[in-house]
Design a binder for these strands. Structure first.
Length: 589
RNA sequence: GGGGACGUAGUUCAGUUGGUUAGAACGCCUGCCUGUCACGCAGGAGGCCGCGGGUUCGAGCCCCGUCGUCCCCGCCA
């Protein structure tokens, strides 16, 4: 097909712009043909660009040459159309389009490019397999849903930058080609040609660099930065993902919270959501006691510990926690549903008491108190649960609470459409503070850093580092949104001597620590200021704002669950010559 | 590393107990059509049933393997 040149043509309006008030004016639109309806003497096009859709009409009586040209147009062709704006008659108004009161009556048309038929329909409401969407991602990105998501992401990023600049932050880049720092996620590595046998690593986060920027005196750093982790993928995990990363000097936790609350208010406002900071704060211990999880979804109520009430009864759980779970407004629960709840509990080694009536008969006094405690009414689902197995040797209480937390979430999700509490348009933020400094690793049989080894401990817990690691609290915090861990940060260790102690508590020898983090220790020894910071997952944040359930839907070019890019077919072979230069041999399977 | 779901036309799917020539809708192509907006009407093209092997007189369907996509556990300081 003969194509037309763009030349000096310039659009006068976007496709979402024209209204009844533009009646009579000339307009030149450019865009993609969203849909075409050829009635013979009349041809309608829905012309689409980033701003919207406008109906264009070609009338045969106007110019047969133009009409013949218009007949050649197909879906997804790129065209320019010039004409005058006409108000539609009342019965031809399309209420589904913002521009539906008008149409462009074309008297000129340019076909700027043709298109093969699209590999899948452009309509949002038609489901298309992800495989084919990812293979032709550029087509998928044209669809309204993806354009809305990607534009929201851009708006959110812009608001984040604006807010942080206003709050005195500098945006500073840190290297992508850096040093592997074991412990943590698996690193992606890059072979070095100039130092054969050695590798750079892609950063899992700019953690150490941002701390060294504090040593460098920048005081307030931020970066919207890609991070890389070579671990298995999930709906909310990609091998490369984007963090809003920041670090501040001479601050305490509350200063970091204030910065983030202000930033998030701006970011969510950019997506049309009003937030009301400050966000609630609970300690890790409270979170475990009330929700059995360190990232509680506070859209549904907490559970209540009731083991004290049932102490001495036949159903007391030998001192381990017993909880009362309340899911409001569930209504009647069938026998089958109760069995499912019980079965789920059993899988988690819980004994589930699903029949409050029976409990009320056997333990009337205790249950009266449970009712008062939970405020449960007849319409609510009330479950009691305790441990059905042998106590675990290590932290048995936490084990039980975790299982109860899973039961609570399972029940809430099961009845989500009844209680309407898990509304994706509600945004419940929560700070979780005072995480434990260490977690026991049963496989390696040692304490590992719960957050990361640069996290400082509570001033009054400093001695517990060596005497009682299990109860040593860190100055670390997570920000949680609707049960999703959005971000995580801490006040860092700024003294080399304390940092050495923590490395020792983690079982690093002095040589180990020196080998892995020597440059950080060295940096801390040259007047490092007290500092702290946080990193927030931008992908997850936009995912929740956009109401999506996978971060792939808010990333322009994401990878599949096996870490491949179906569009450009990465990863791929590289020429043998390149491998020779790099001094690399590998075994092919 | 483990568990689960799925794989049939460009797309979304159906396909009976293993039995003739594998279907539908949308999309695509051709023709007709001056008020459509999921346009309509008539006609047409389009299939390595993911791939390989096996069972069987006969496999889209059963079995084994393999590849791919998605979800979950482990993992993700």
């Amino acid at each position: 097909m003969k194509l037309d040149f763009l030349g000096d043509l310039r659009r006068t309006h976007h496709c979402g712009a024209l209204r009844a008030s533009d009646e009579g004016s000339r307009a030149l639109l450019m865009g993609w043909v969203h849909r075409r309806r050829d009635l013979g003497g009349l041809i309608f096009l829905h012309l689409r660009d980033i701003q919207g859709i406008t109906q264009v009409v070609f009338r045969a009586e106007m110019d047969s040459e133009i009409h013949a040209r218009a007949e050649q147009i197909r879906g997804e062709f790129v065209v320019a159309v010039e004409g005058h704006v006409e108000k539609r008659s009342a019965e031809t108004i399309n209420p589904n389009l913002p521009t539906g009161e008008v149409e462009l009556v074309a008297d000129k048309v340019w076909i700027l490019n043709e298109s093969k038929p699209a590999p899948f329909p452009m309509e949002d409401d038609l489901s298309v397999g992800e495989e084919v969407r990812l293979k032709h991602r550029y087509i998928d990105l044209r669809r309204h849903r993806m354009q809305a998501n990607i534009r929201m992401r851009s708006a959110v990023s812009y608001a984040v930058r604006q807010s942080l600049y206003q709050q005195g932050f500098q945006e500073i880049e840190t290297p992508f080609m850096t040093r592997s720092t074991p412990e943590g996620a698996r690193d992606f590595v890059i072979p070095s040609r100039l130092t054969p046998g050695s590798f750079y690593a892609l950063p899992q986060s700019p953690q150490i660099f941002k701390q060294l920027l504090m040593v460098g005196g920048y005081e307030r750093y931020f970066q919207i930065v890609r991070c890389f982790r070579d671990e298995d993928l999930r709906a909310d995990r990609q091998p490369e993902f984007t963090q809003i990363d920041l670090e501040m000097s001479f601050v305490q936790q509350s200063d970091v919270f204030a910065v983030i609350e202000s930033m998030l208010s701006k970011a969510f406002a950019a997506a049309g959501v009003d937030l009301a900071p400050p966000f609630p704060r609970i300690t890790y211990r409270q979170a475990m006691d009330s929700y059995g999880i360190d990232k509680p979804d506070t859209r549904i109520p907490p559970f209540h510990r009731v083991e004290a009430l049932f102490d001495g009864t036949p159903i007391s759980g030998n001192g381990l926690p017993m909880v009362a779970i309340l899911i409001p407004k569930v209504g009647q629960v069938s026998r089958k549903e109760r069995d499912e709840l019980k079965a789920f509990g059993q899988e988690k080694k819980l004994r589930v008491f699903d029949d409050p009536k029976r409990l009320e008969r056997d333990f009337p006094e205790q249950m009266a108190q449970v009712r008062t405690l939970t405020g449960a009414t007849e319409d609510d689902l009330l479950l009691l649960a305790n441990w059905a197995a042998e106590p675990d040797e290590h932290l048995p209480e936490r084990e039980v609470l975790k299982a109860c937390g899973q039961l609570r979430l399972f029940a809430a999700q099961k009845y989500a459409d009844r209680h309407k509490l898990l509304d994706p348009k509600q945004f419940h933020f929560l700070w979780v503070v005072d995480f434990p400094m260490f977690e026991w690793d049963p496989e390696e049989h040692r304490w590992v850093a719960a957050h990361h080894p640069f996290t400082s401990v509570h001033d009054e817990d400093l001695d517990l580092l060596t005497t009682d690691p299990a109860n040593c609290r860190a100055k670390s915090y997570d920000i949680v949104l609707n049960g999703v861990e959005l971000g995580s940060g801490s006040i860092r260790i700024h003294r080399a001597d304390v940092q050495q102690k923590v490395f020792a508590a983690l079982g690093f020898t002095a040589e180990d620590a020196q080998h892995r983090f020597g440059f950080l220790l060295e940096g801390l020894s040259y007047g490092a200021p007290p500092h702290g910071g946080i990193a927030l997952g931008l992908d997850r944040m936009v995912m929740i704002l956009a109401g999506e359930s996978s971060i792939r839907d808010v990333i322009a070019f994401p990878k599949t669950a096996r870490g491949t890019d179906l569009m450009c077919e990465a990863p791929s072979d590289v020429p043998d010559r390149l491998l020779r230069d790099l001094g690399i041999m590998h075994t092919r399977r």
